[in-house]
Design a protein around this nucleic acid. Structure first.
Lengths: 251, 251
DNA sequence: AATCTTCGGTTCATTATATGGAACAGTAAT
DNA sequence: ATTACTGTTCCATATAATGAACCGAAGATT
């Protein structure tokens, strides 16, 4: 995770943040030794940073196991971040409508590092399976929203990691293959994934933009591959683009 | 905001966190000079810390105004914190039920510093006014949930700041007055506020506990004072206590 | 019951790291 | 052209962060 340039002069702050980011859905509770190992920091350093994070309530401890976990301060900041970003509020009714009209699941996602974070989700009436994915993150290159983002964002493919993780036999693992799709995506206005994220699972995605035309995130509609014929995907893509442009504030 | 003991050895990390906490509902976007002034830090130091926070995407910048604001990384961590704390998920159906049965608004709140943070909210059918308060914070001493917390938590009144802010003519501003109520609250199992937070607004609150009996937060039911007779409050309080005990995991 | 491990946590001399004054650089308004 | 704001970078200084070694307690293993 050695990101781009090493910003200097705030090492301790960066390390503290990296520690926070070690808490994932798979490992919501960690203990000192694990944190130290995962971060590569000395135990003492880790402990000192943890103490600071505890004092600010960004972390707290499970009173039973004494393991560290994200705390109430983190929730407060997160809720603050979510509500000050009005995208989510404005997108809600559109997601609802998309889900109602198509029967599939609609999501709002934003990019974080090289993943797409599911910010909000409305499940359709065909209720295939997984719902309640808010908060989970998927690799950019394997999602329809991520591909749309790569196609329309300034940074483009450079956002991607060198190695593209393979999640299914159909996941795109060569950056050149992805680049060939970008033209199509730009022309049509939306991206598709078929069995690339998970077998039997397909979706379409389109970017949403802010008032200055900057890319903020993306919307998607997704469901089981058997319901996602090429025609249907085109149709869903059109509905998605429509919703996405409605979401853009105009001046 | 010079909290308790000054934890040593992680100054930079603490300062970075303090900077993050300056972003509130009232001031969701701030610029360098404001952050520097509010935090009391040198402009250079502020800038360096901000750069680090930007690089980790805990902050980003409004492309129009170039002001700083909480970023996608913060949302990711927040969502993570919210979902790893399963209290919110477990409380949801109970809130729904309370709101349905009473017609009033039910909330789940957790303590942060000397405030109560509204984590979740279900508005009842009498839809008085303010809904969508998730993420806002109220002073502990002026809320029913906060008073319940003080009564049942180990720390007790020491959690409170020296000066109790007055929000209405009926807000409790003397710590001794509050302490006199604690016995009643403990005996009945729930706390009440009548016009103490806002004129014409009343509520009852009860703590929720974790598997080890530790206090995690509180539930409330609240609405306009005219619907909140003493009898009704007692009745709502009973329903609340019932819900709160259901929420406690048993082993 | 004695020994070994493995936890979280602490101490302290060393030096790498963060600090902040000053100076710079873009914009916008005057 | 001047002033008054922004956000930036530089760099000598000393302060604040570092990590090897150390503690003490709680389980395992013998």
């Amino acid at each position: 995770m050695r990101d781009q340039a090493p910003p200097q002069g705030a090492q301790a702050a960066l390390r503290a943040i990296r520690l926070l980011k070690l808490f994932t859905a798979e490992a919501p509770e960690l203990q000192l030794a694990e944190l130290s190992y995962l971060s590569g920091l000395n135990k003492t350093t880790t402990h000192r940073l943890l103490k600071a994070l505890l004092s600010e309530e960004l972390l707290d401890r499970n009173p039973g196991t004494s393991a560290y976990r994200l705390g109430p301060g983190m929730m407060a900041l997160g809720v603050q971040a979510l509500s000050s970003n009005d995208l989510r509020l404005r997108a809600r009714p559109l997601l609802k409508r998309l889900a109602d009209e198509t029967g599939e699941t609609a999501t709002l996602e934003v990019p974080i590092d090289d993943t797409m974070l599911i910010l909000d989700e409305v499940t359709g009436r065909h209720f295939v399976g997984a719902s309640g994915n808010v908060g989970t993150r998927w690799p950019i290159h394997a999602t329809s929203t991520g591909k749309a983002l790569i196609a329309f964002e300034q940074r483009g493919p450079e956002r991607l990691n060198a190695t593209l993780l393979s999640l299914t036999p159909r996941t795109i693992t060569e950056i050149e293959v992805l680049e060939k799709q970008l033209g199509d995506i730009r022309r049509r206005g939306f991206a598709e994934t078929v069995d690339e994220l998970e077998d039997g699972f397909s979706g379409v995605g389109a970017v949403v933009r802010g008032g200055m035309g900057e890319v903020l995130g993306a919307l998607s509609i997704c469901g089981p591959t058997q319901r996602m014929s090429e025609n249907r995907r085109a149709q869903l893509g059109a509905a998605l683009c429509n919703a996405a442009t409605r979401l853009q504030p105009r001046y």
